[in-house]
Every structure is written in C-alpha cells, then in structure tokens.
Amino acid sequence: MAENVLEFTDANFQSEVLEASEPVLVDFWAPWCGPCKMMMPTIEEIASDYSGRVRVGKLNTDENPGIASASSINAIPTVMLYKNGEVVEKFVGVTPKERFAASLDSQL
C-alpha cells in the first residue's frame, strides 16, 4: 500500500475517520476482490493528489467486519466520503478517478 494511503480498522475508525477534521475517503475492500485490486492505483493517485487536504485510506472488510456491517457495505469495492463524521457520498463498484476528484473538490 502506498505510504500516503492509511489503513483503517474497527479499532481506529472512530478516531481516524469519524472524528477527523478533514474529509476522509474510505475504500472498503478485500484481498480476494478483483475489482478492488483494479481500484488500488486510483485510490493511491487520489491520496497523492489530495495529500494534506483529504485523508485517504482502505478498510479490509474481511478483517474489520464490525465497521463494514455498521456501514451497510453490501458490495465491494465501495468507497465512501466522510465529512464531519457523516457520509456525504457513496460510490459502489469500480469508479473513475474523476468522479472521486469532483466529489472531493466539492467538499473542500
């Protein structure tokens, strides 16, 4: 995983995502998911492009079922944008970088 892509877990989700002062983009994924692997370069590019302005991270749904369940993740990849602890946008399936960028730009 790229150095500017954070790892979110059931244990740190509250502090790292819900209590963050900046917008947070969370990629819900699993290692066996082909489309999730396809999304990895896009997530890494977004993390690099928005470094210092947006927190970007991944949450492995297999290892962190509590947050995945609480977030009503029914399909992966699912990417959610949080601001002030609330979901402001949800993307399901492989999503182009431009859609993430437009959504992030509207929250900054």
Rank of each mutant, 00 (worst) to 15 (best):
N64H: 09
D62I: 02
V5C: 09
S15D: 15
Q14G: 05
L6N: 08
I67Q: 09
F8H: 05
Y82Q: 05
T42C: 02
V79C: 08
L104C: 06
F28D: 09
A102C: 00
E16V: 02
E16Q: 13
T78Y: 08
P65R: 03
P77C: 07
L59D: 08
M80T: 01
G34F: 10
M39L: 15
G57Q: 06
V54F: 05
N4L: 09
S106Q: 14
P77L: 12
L18D: 10
D10C: 02
N64R: 08
C33H: 07
A2K: 10
A70F: 06
E98Q: 12
S21C: 04
L6P: 00
S48I: 01
L104H: 04
T42I: 14
E7K: 13
V56P: 05
V26I: 11
E86Y: 00
V87L: 07
D105F: 02
P35E: 10
M39Y: 05
L6R: 11
N12V: 11
V88Q: 10
L18H: 08
R55G: 01
I73W: 05
K83G: 03
L81Y: 03
F91V: 09
S48F: 08
A101L: 04
V92G: 06
S72L: 12
E3A: 10
E22S: 08
A47Q: 07
V94I: 13
Y50G: 00
I46C: 06
E19T: 05
G52T: 09
L18A: 07
N12L: 10
L108F: 15
A70Y: 06
E63S: 14
N60S: 08
N64Y: 03
F100K: 00
E44W: 01
W32P: 00
Q107Y: 09
T42H: 04
S21T: 12
D49E: 15
K37E: 10
P41T: 07
N12M: 11
Q14N: 13
T42A: 07
K58Y: 05
S71G: 02
L6I: 06
S106M: 13
E45G: 01
V92M: 13
L104N: 06
F13Y: 14
R99N: 14
F13S: 03
A102S: 11
I67K: 00
A2Q: 14
K37Q: 15
P31R: 09
N4W: 09
E89D: 12
V54I: 15
K90A: 12
Q14W: 03
S51F: 14
C33W: 12
G57P: 07
V17D: 01
A2P: 03
A70W: 01
N84V: 01
R99K: 15
G57F: 04
E3L: 12
I67P: 00
P65G: 08
V94E: 11
L6W: 02
D49R: 11
N4Q: 13
I67F: 00
T95K: 06
K90C: 07
V79Y: 01
E98H: 06
L59G: 00
K90H: 05
I76E: 02
A102W: 02
S106R: 11
E22K: 11
Q14P: 04
A20K: 05
N74M: 15
F13D: 00
S51V: 01
M38A: 11
V56Y: 01
Y82C: 04
R53L: 14
F28T: 06
P41F: 04
